[in-house]
Amino acid sequence: MLLGKPTIRGTRRSVEFLLERLADGWTEQDLLDNYPRLTREALQAVFAYVHATMKDNLLLFPTNNLRQAS
């Protein structure tokens, strides 16, 4: 954990950091190219983690912070 945030094992990259990059328009390939310790399996684990937290209603969505897709 990085300051209490879930991270990718073997890296200092948090799930939040990776999701923020994706939200900013980065692709999975961009992440893999820029962070060599990341693997496709690690990114799959990020998506599984987010899915599990959403499914179990553990992830809250503050409506005032959501970006509009254009």
Score class of each variant (00 low, 15 high):
Met1His: 08
Leu2Ile: 12
Lys5Pro: 00
Pro6Gln: 05
Thr7Leu: 08
Ile8His: 02
Ile8Lys: 04
Gly10Cys: 02
Thr11Glu: 00
Arg12Leu: 13
Arg13His: 13
Arg13Asn: 10
Ser14Thr: 15
Val15Glu: 04
Phe17Asp: 05
Phe17Met: 07
Phe17Arg: 06
Leu18His: 03
Leu19Lys: 06
Glu20Arg: 14
Arg21Ser: 05
Arg21Val: 00
Ala23Tyr: 07
Ala23Val: 05
Ala23Leu: 12
Asp24Lys: 11
Asp24Leu: 14
Asp24Pro: 00
Asp24Ile: 00
Gly25Ile: 02
Gly25Lys: 06
Gly25Val: 03
Trp26Val: 00
Glu28Tyr: 09
Glu28Trp: 05
Gln29Leu: 08
Gln29Arg: 14
Asp30Ser: 08
Asp30Thr: 10
Leu32Ser: 04
Leu32Tyr: 03
Asp33Lys: 07
Asp33Trp: 01
Asp33Met: 05
Asn34His: 15
Asn34Arg: 14
Tyr35Gln: 05
Pro36Val: 01
Leu38Met: 05
Glu41Lys: 12
Leu43Met: 15
Gln44Asp: 15
Gln44Leu: 11
Gln44Cys: 03
Gln44Arg: 15
Ala45Met: 09
Val46Gly: 02
Phe47Val: 05
Ala48Ser: 10
Tyr49Thr: 07
Val50Leu: 11
Val50Thr: 06
Ala52Gln: 15
Ala52Met: 10
Thr53His: 10
Thr53Val: 10
Thr53Tyr: 06
Met54Asn: 12
Met54Lys: 11
Met54Tyr: 11
Met54Gln: 12
Asp56Glu: 15
Asp56Arg: 15
Asn57Ala: 10
Leu58Phe: 02
Leu58Ala: 11
Leu60Pro: 00
Leu60Met: 09
Pro62Val: 01
Pro62Trp: 02
Thr63Tyr: 08
Thr63Gly: 00
Asn64Thr: 12
Asn65Phe: 13
Asn65Gly: 00
Ser70Lys: 10
